[in-house]
Design a protein around this nucleic acid. Structure first.
Length: 336
DNA sequence: AGTCTTCCCATCTTTACTTCA
DNA sequence: CTTGAAGTAAAGATGGGAAGA
């Protein structure tokens, strides 16, 4: 570390790596008495950090940090990721592009995105070890935060500021979070994936994220929101349908009430009404519904089509609610 | 029993767009 | 016609709780 500038008095560069296994790594370069950035101005810095959360040599990853501090204090910070072994020949050195340009911070704080870091690690590990491919492996929940603060902030402060694993990527310097807007291509691809499966397993999530150059968490959130909005839409549709059902039933009820009134009036004005052939018109004495066995009845002509149309819009009403024969028998009994 | 992950849900926040004075 | 404020819908993000491993 600090290989490029061996003689330079670097007051304090602290790098903290937090892993789920409580792995902690702190590097201290120098005594922290003078401004690191001042001293480093105009010079190239480089350091290496070996990460190992399993104790296995093969799972080690080396992070190479490289920075050049401008005279105005800007601190472009770039990390190169190097799997310890085996290093794929095709990809001996991986860069973390999302860090390049992430140097607007006045405190020169660079935050590695854990998930993309993992994706890169896995990419580097392709063809080699599959020890971290399990969705529930430790690497899947790899969290890393790396800060360079020139000795101004201690680890406790970093701790206090650290987001949890689902935390935001907020700029910690008070700048408003810039909400990502997915491109049309990304959205379209996600939509297509959603059509195929509305939920994702961890592997699918990682693949999608990789393909779309998004964080797995973003993909996960997109699918969550997509499911929620699909459900909301379906609820709205159901609600609309039930509303129509309700209106139809209300209308039918109104019509039947009217019909009932007419029948009662008919019964009053024609005392021999009940002596009509039972096959022509029957009424259940308990519920006073009208049923017929003959298509010539005027009541049938009114009631039947309406019931049929109701049943067509209300499938759950398709089954007859009353048995006409049962009503017929009851009507006979009541008449006698 | 405790931990971790994922999901759902409610809610907040940001962005893009529309309306209107 | 232009412009800027206000309103709104859509969508990304967050945090809490539940469930399962």
């Amino acid at each position: 570390m600090g290989e490029g500038e061996g003689k330079m008095d670097i007051p304090s560069v602290r790098t903290r790596v937090s892993l789920r296994q409580q792995m902690e790594l702190a590097l201290s370069l120098g005594d922290g008495s003078t401004s690191f950035l001042d001293k480093a101005s105009g010079k190239d810095l480089e350091f290496h950090v070996a990460l190992d959360n399993t104790g296995e040599e093969r799972s080690k990853t080396v992070i190479t940090g490289r920075a050049r501090v401008d005279s105005d204090g800007d601190f472009p910070f770039q990390l190169d990721l190097l799997p310890f072994s085996p290093v794929p020949r095709s990809n001996p050195q991986l860069r973390l592009p999302w860090l390049v340009g992430n140097h607007g911070s006045s405190e020169s704080e660079a935050v590695l995105d854990a998930n993309r870091f993992q994706a890169m690690v896995e990419e580097a590990d392709e063809g080699g070890s599959q020890s971290h491919s399990s969705p529930n492996s430790e690497m899947s929940s790899f969290q890393m935060e790396l800060g360079i603060s020139g000795g101004k902030r201690d680890l406790e402060a970093v701790d206090a500021e650290r987001d949890d694993s689902r935390g935001s990527d907020d700029d910690e310097n008070g700048l408003a979070r810039k909400k990502l807007r997915l491109s049309k291509e990304q959205s379209a691809f996600l939509e297509e994936s959603f059509k195929e499966h509305s939920t994702l397993n961890p592997k699918q999530k990682l693949l999608l994220a990789k393909h779309l150059n998004l964080r797995p968490r973003q993909v996960e959130v997109w699918f969550q929101n997509r499911r929620a909005r699909t459900k909301l839409k379906q609820t709205e549709i159901d609600c609309e349908y039930l509303k129509r059902c309700c209106e139809t039933l209300t209308e039918e009820n109104r019509r039947l009430q009217k019909e009932l009134q007419e029948l009662r009036a008919l019964k009053t004005s024609q005392p021999f009404y009940m002596q009509l052939p039972a096959t022509t018109l029957t009424m259940c004495p308990s519920c006073e519904r009208v049923a017929t066995a003959s298509s010539t009845s005027s009541a049938t002509a009114v009631a039947a089509p309406a019931t049929a149309s109701t049943a067509s819009t209300l499938p759950f009403l398709a089954k007859p609610r009353v048995n006409p024969f049962h009503l017929q028998a009851q009507a006979h009994k009541a008449a006698s």
